[in-house]
Computed example of a mutant assay.
Amino acid sequence: MSVSDLIATLILALLLLQAAVRLPGTLRGQRRSRSLSGAFTAFAIAWWLRTGLGRTAVDPLGVNDLPTLLKHVLAIAGICVLLMYVCDVYAEEDTSARHIRISAWIQRATAYASVATVVCMTAVFFLVLDRSKTGKDSPYFIGRHMGDPGLALYMGLFYAYVVAAALVCAYQWGRAARRAGHWSLRTGLTMMSAGMTLIVVYAVMRTVFLSVATLHPLPARDLADQEHITDTVLYAGFLLWLLGSIVPALRALLTRARSIHAILRLHPLWRDLALAVDGIALYQPAHLLRGHRAAQHPCATSSPTTPPPADPPRPPLGD
């Protein structure tokens, strides 16, 4: 397995972890959890198609470069859902602010722009792009279509969409980071904003390279160097975004762990108090393990109860 596939597999695992964490909220019908879970799943499949295993699974369909098209379509779907989520979150702020009005407009236009981009890219892929070359000619999609005007049009549509969406996300997360009250949230939002900025840099670098390569085809060595440099920027951007989205959740997890630890340390004191004062606890402590933290509390019906006092005797009634 190549280094590229290893990094893609790591990113894939992080994306699936994020989707799994939000699965309970998705099953409960929470709209935002469902949106994030869908975005992470779409990104995960797109990154899987970047690996040799993903390409091998799709190649038997008999359509040259089909993994690349599917990868780009899924990436657009994931970006669309993520962008709508971001705009929806920050639209709850002051609606009179200009950036909130712009975000609301972007949220309404995102779905239409995504569908239009996918339709145009698919049309260019099947009708304009020369797909007669295969992976034997070059291991890179750009290298196989170097000098083809259809390549510049196809990738130009994709990168224009990526740049627009990533800029909106980077701006919103960067603005929210400046206003965040806790260090973990501020750190996470800053990392996410920096990750989106790197993805913008990646798309711009690829666009400039494609413009030059379309007019003046470059040797294979320059192509490999470009792929290595831009892929490194893409990996760094995605990892920053993913790790930034995990940081606030880690703080909540640590808080939960500290709370459980405190409860376990208080358990012996609670047990002694419950045994010393009858009726102070709703559930009596179990006798198993003599108060060890692994002891289970019995049900309320099994706890001993004190019988109610008997009614005082009544005096006999006279005749």
Rank of each mutant, 00 (worst) to 15 (best):
P67E: 12
L69I: 05
H72C: 09
V73T: 11
V73R: 06
I76K: 05
I76V: 14
I76D: 08
A77R: 04
A77H: 09
G78T: 01
C80I: 06
L82E: 10
Y85E: 10
D88H: 06
A91K: 01
E92Q: 14
A97G: 08
R101H: 02
I102G: 05
S103W: 09
S103H: 06
S103T: 01
S103Q: 09
W105E: 13
I106T: 04
I106P: 01
Q107Y: 11
R108M: 12
A111I: 10
Y112Q: 13
Y112R: 14
S114N: 00
S114K: 02
V115C: 05
T117C: 15
V118Y: 03
A123S: 11
V124C: 12
F125R: 04
F126L: 10
V128T: 10
V128I: 14
V128Q: 13
L129P: 06
R131Y: 05
K133V: 07
K136Q: 15
D137F: 12
S138T: 00
Y140D: 09
F141W: 13
H145E: 02
M146P: 03
G147Q: 06
D148V: 04
D148M: 13
G150I: 08
G150S: 03
A152Y: 13
A152E: 02
L153I: 14
Y154K: 01
G156A: 05
G156H: 10
L157H: 02
F158W: 14
F158Y: 15
Y159T: 00
A160F: 06
A160R: 06
V162Y: 10
A164H: 07
A166P: 02
V168D: 12
Y171M: 09
W173Y: 15
W173P: 05
